[in-house]
C-alpha cells in the first residue's frame, strides 16, 4: 500500500530539491546555449584552425560518460596540490560550481554539434540569394544562416534540454541535494521505493511534459513554414 503520509511529509524536501534541479538546468542550459552558437559557427568554418579545436572539444566531451566527467572534475582535480593552491580552487571547491561546469561543458558539446548540423543543412538557395543581394559574410550569418539554422535545430535542441534535465540527477553523486538525492534519502529512511522513486519519476515526467510542450509551442511559431499544408493538397 502507498503510504501517503510519507509523500506528504516529503513535499518540502522535494520542493527544495526541485529548486536545485531547475537552477542547475537553467544555468547550464543558458551558458551552454551562449557558448554553442559561436562554437557551431567555428565548427563549420572552412578554416581548420577554427574548426579542428571545436571538433576535438565535442569529440572528447561526447566520447566520455557524464558521470565520469563529474568525478574527474569534482574528485579528480582536487587531488592535485597545484589545483588546490591556484586561483580556481575557490570555485572548484564548491560542489555547485563543479556540477554547473560539467553540465555546461557537456551540453555545450552536444548543442554545438546540433547547431553545426543545422548550419550545414542550410539550403544552398538561401545562401545564393543572400550573396546575390550583396550581403557580407557577417550579415549572411546574422540574418540568414543562424536564424534559419537555429529554427531548424529546435526539435533536436528540445530533446537535448530534456536529456540535460534528466542528467542533472548526476549532481546527487557530488553531495548536491536535488530531487533524485531527495528520493534516495526518503528511500533510505522509509525503505519504500514507490513513495520515493515513484514520486520523483512523476516529477521528472511532469517536467519533461512541460518542457516538451513549450518546445512544441516554439516549433509551431518558428517552424510554421515547414509545416505540411493542411488543405489544398488533395
Amino acid at each position: 500500500m502507498i503510504d501517503w503520509s510519507v509523500i506528504v511529509d516529503s513535499i518540502p524536501a522535494f520542493l527544495k530539491g526541485l529548486q536545485t534541479t531547475m537552477l542547475l538546468l537553467v544555468l547550464s542550459c543558458g551558458a551552454g546555449f551562449l557558448m554553442s552558437v559561436p562554437l557551431a559557427v567555428a565548427r563549420v568554418s572552412p578554416n581548420p584552425w577554427l574548426s579542428k579545436p571545436v571538433w576535438l572539444f565535442t569529440y572528447v566531451l561526447r566520447g566520455t560518460p557524464l558521470l565520469v566527467q563529474m568525478f574527474m572534475v569534482y574528485y579528480g582535480l582536487a587531488q592535485f596540490e597545484a589545483v588546490r593552491e591556484s586561483f580556481v580552487w575557490p570555485f572548484l571547491r564548491d560542489a555547485w560550481f563543479c556540477a554547473w561546469l560539467v553540465f555546461t561543458l557537456n551540453t555545450t558539446a552536444y548543442t554545438t554539434e546540433i547547431f553545426a548540423g543545422a548550419l550545414r543543412a542550410t539550403p544552398s538557395g538561401e545562401l545564393e540569394a543572400a550573396r546575390a543581394c550583396g550581403l557580407s559574410e557577417a550579415a549572411i550569418y546574422r540574418r540568414i544562416l543562424l536564424p534559419s539554422a537555429l529554427r531548424r535545430a529546435l526539435p533536436q535542441y528540445g530533446n537535448e534540454v530534456v536529456m540535460l534535465m534528466h542528467a542533472t540527477a548526476i549532481a546527487s553523486t557530488v553531495t548536491l541535494v536535488e530531487i533524485t538525492r531527495v528520493a534516495r534519502d526518503i528511500y533510505y529512511n522509509h525503505l519504500s521505493p514507490i513513495e520515493s522513486f515513484g514520486v520523483v519519476a512523476v516529477i521528472y515526467f511532469v517536467l519533461t511534459f512541460g518542457m516538451a510542450g513549450l518546445f512544441k509551442l516554439a516549433e509551431r511559431r518558428f517552424l510554421r513554414h515547414l509545416r505540411p499544408v493542411a488543405s489544398g493538397v488533395a
Binding site: Y75, A78, Q79, R84, W89, R93, A95, T173, T175
Partner: peptide, 18 residues
C-alpha cells in the same frame, strides 16, 4: 555539515579541503 555518499568519500572531501 557536508554529507558524503560513501565512507571513503568522507576522507576525499577532507583531503580536498571541502
Amino acid at each position: 555539515v557536508l554529507l558524503a555518499d560513501k565512507e571513503t568519500n568522507v576522507y576525499l572531501e577532507l583531503a580536498a579541503g571541502r
